[in-house]
Amino acid sequence: MDSAGEVLDGHPFVVAHRGASADRPEHTLAAYELALREGADGVECDVRLTRDGHLVCVHDRRIDRTANGTGLVSELTLNELRQYDYGKWHGSWRADGTHGDTGLLTLEKLVELVLDFRRPVKLFIETKHPVRYGALVENKVLALLHRFGIAAPPSADLSRAVVMSFSAAAVWRIRRAAPLLPTVLLGETSRYLAGSAATTVGATAVGPSITTLRDHPELVDRAAAQGRALYCWTVDHYEDVQFCREQGVAWLATNHPGRTKDWLQNGLTEAGRD
């Protein structure tokens, strides 16, 4: 298709949601390295700003759920956040580190990992809102992408990065400052995603959940008619993966990138059943 990506041979591209987050702790180097080994076409992360202005890959406002510590990301410095481990809560964690690094992951480190990988992989960066730092989050993301030379791609199709948000204002800030950078307007409802918001902010793709898409499959055709791709989250079950392929979804985000790639290429096998 266009913008965030195109459908290849009828197969959606597979995005590792927070890395291979079913098998490794989310947003850790271990999760992203596994996702790349498993053949993910893209990787997704959530970013927040620390108190001293660093972009880190953490989903929640607080670190309590995924770290062996407590506190708000926005009230802690990078060094303070680095005191904790972000994988001990997960069943795959090993004290000897055999399953990879589960320390705090910065966006800078993730960009390096993706760009240094042996094949092209897209990085989907979600900025979280509302946050105390407001537009500074998008400004910092763009500054980082500029530093790596990927904020102004020759075309949207060739872009190595995609910026996403549930905040229309955040998408507009990215679109206005980096017009060739693909953007995804995420949303909870079909009414919102099928309305004028995506056009108003210049989003190149829309992003419903699999639940919303199941209820409103017409979102794919509506997006295509407006020149947009469709990014669907979080697609973990075989029937939903097949549904996304049948509907012409461009990108699907999943916690199981390896299994999902196998399903798309080989179909459901006994070993791969839920």
Rank of each mutant, 00 (worst) to 15 (best):
S3V: 14
A4T: 15
V7P: 01
D9M: 04
H11T: 02
A20Y: 04
S21R: 05
A30N: 04
A31C: 10
R37K: 13
G53W: 04
L55R: 00
V56R: 05
D60R: 06
R62F: 12
D64L: 01
A67T: 06
T70F: 10
S74K: 10
L76R: 14
E80Q: 15
E80R: 11
R82Q: 15
R82V: 03
Y84M: 04
Y84K: 04
Y86Q: 02
K88N: 01
G91C: 11
W93E: 12
T98A: 15
G103D: 07
L105I: 02
K109V: 13
V114Y: 02
P120C: 04
F124G: 03
V131F: 10
R132P: 15
R132Q: 14
R132G: 11
Y133N: 03
E138R: 00
K140L: 13
V141E: 01
L144H: 00
L145S: 08
L145C: 09
L145F: 14
R147W: 13
F148S: 13
I150F: 01
I150M: 08
P153K: 05
P153I: 02
P154I: 01
L158N: 13
S159C: 00
A161V: 11
A161L: 06
V162Q: 10
V163T: 09
V171P: 01
W172N: 11
I174F: 10
R175S: 13
L180N: 07
L180T: 11
L181Q: 09
V184R: 08
L185H: 12
L185P: 02
G187E: 12
S190G: 15
R191N: 02
R191M: 08
Y192F: 14
L193M: 04
L193V: 09
A194M: 08
T199Q: 14
T199V: 03
A203P: 00
G207M: 02
S209L: 05
T211F: 14
T212W: 12
L213P: 03
D215S: 14
P217W: 04
L219Q: 08
V220W: 09
R222E: 13
R222N: 05
G227D: 12
V235A: 07
V241E: 04
Q247W: 06
V249C: 00
V249W: 03
L252Y: 05
A253C: 10
R259C: 12
T260L: 06
T260I: 08
W263K: 02
Q265N: 14
T269I: 05
E270D: 11
R273D: 06
D274H: 08
